[in-house]
Every structure is written in C-alpha cells, then in structure tokens.
Simulated assay, not measured.
Amino acid sequence: MVPPGTIVPKSPGVAVLASFFLPGLGSMISGNGGIGALILVLYMASWVLTLVLVGFLGVFGFWVWGMVQGYSDAVAWNRRHGLIS
C-alpha cells in the first residue's frame, strides 16, 4: 500500500500497452482523459468509415497515435511531478 501523499510515477510502457488494446486508454490512465477520449472516438468513427473503405487509414493512424500519445502523456506527467521515467 502506498502511503497517502506519495506520488507514484505513471508507467509509459503500461500506457503504450493499454493503448495497444484500446486506443486512447493510455492517455486516459496517464491523466489526459480529454485527448484519450478524442482518440477513442475518432478510432471508433474510423471503423464505421471502413464500410466505405475510407476509414482504414484512420483506424491505423488513430491506433498508432493512441500509443504514442499515451507514452508522451505518462512521461509528461512524471516530469511535472519531478519523477524520472
């Protein structure tokens, strides 16, 4: 158990892994819920657009963006709190 008031670092690796399975989740667990939700909504919209073959680029792009953003958010959160990741 972590004592109250202790700052626990966010893991960039866990953020990337979470976004691998659900785009945007890594950003959400790294404290950037707005961007994470945006990535998830755009990813799901791209799946709908695959019905007309337009969405395949979006599906891949938002999936990759989710992983990169999750990593960046975790590292940024750690830096803001004086932690090294």
Rank of each mutant, 00 (worst) to 15 (best):
I39H: 00
Y71M: 12
G31T: 12
L38K: 13
R80P: 00
Y71R: 14
T6G: 02
M44Q: 10
S11H: 04
P12W: 03
V2D: 00
I35H: 09
I84L: 13
L40Q: 14
K10P: 04
G33F: 10
R80W: 01
V41C: 13
W63R: 01
L22Q: 06
G55K: 02
L53M: 15
F20Q: 03
V52D: 10
G55D: 03
S19M: 04
P23V: 01
G82K: 05
L83N: 03
S46G: 09
F21W: 10
A45N: 08
V2T: 12
L53F: 15
I39T: 05
V54R: 07
P12N: 04
L17C: 09
G36R: 05
F56T: 08
V41Q: 11
W63Y: 11
G31Q: 11
N78V: 02
I7T: 15
L22Y: 12
P23W: 01
L51K: 09
G58T: 05
G33Q: 13
N32V: 12
L25N: 01
L17R: 09
M28L: 12
P3R: 07
S19Q: 01
L38S: 14
F62P: 00
V14Q: 09
S30N: 09
F62N: 02
A37N: 13
K10Y: 07
V64R: 03
S85T: 10
G82N: 06
S27N: 12
G82H: 06
P4K: 11
R80E: 10
G55M: 02
D73K: 09
M1P: 14
L38T: 15
S11I: 05
F60Y: 13
S30Q: 08
A45C: 10
A37C: 13
V16T: 03
V14H: 06
S72Q: 10
V48Q: 07
I7K: 15
V68E: 12
W65Q: 08
G13T: 13
L22I: 15
F21M: 09
V14T: 14
L40R: 09
V48W: 11
P4N: 13
P3V: 06
A18M: 09
G70Q: 07
S27G: 11
F62C: 04
M1F: 08
D73F: 13
V68W: 13
P12A: 02
V16I: 14
S46E: 07
V68T: 12
T50R: 08
M67K: 08
I84Q: 14
S72W: 04
P9N: 04
V68D: 12
L57K: 08
V16C: 08
V68S: 11
A18H: 00
L42R: 07
M44A: 11
G24I: 01
W77C: 06
T50P: 02
I7P: 02
V48Y: 11
L53I: 15
P12D: 02
N32R: 15
F21T: 04
G24V: 00
G66H: 03
V52T: 15
P9Y: 06
F60N: 07
M1L: 11
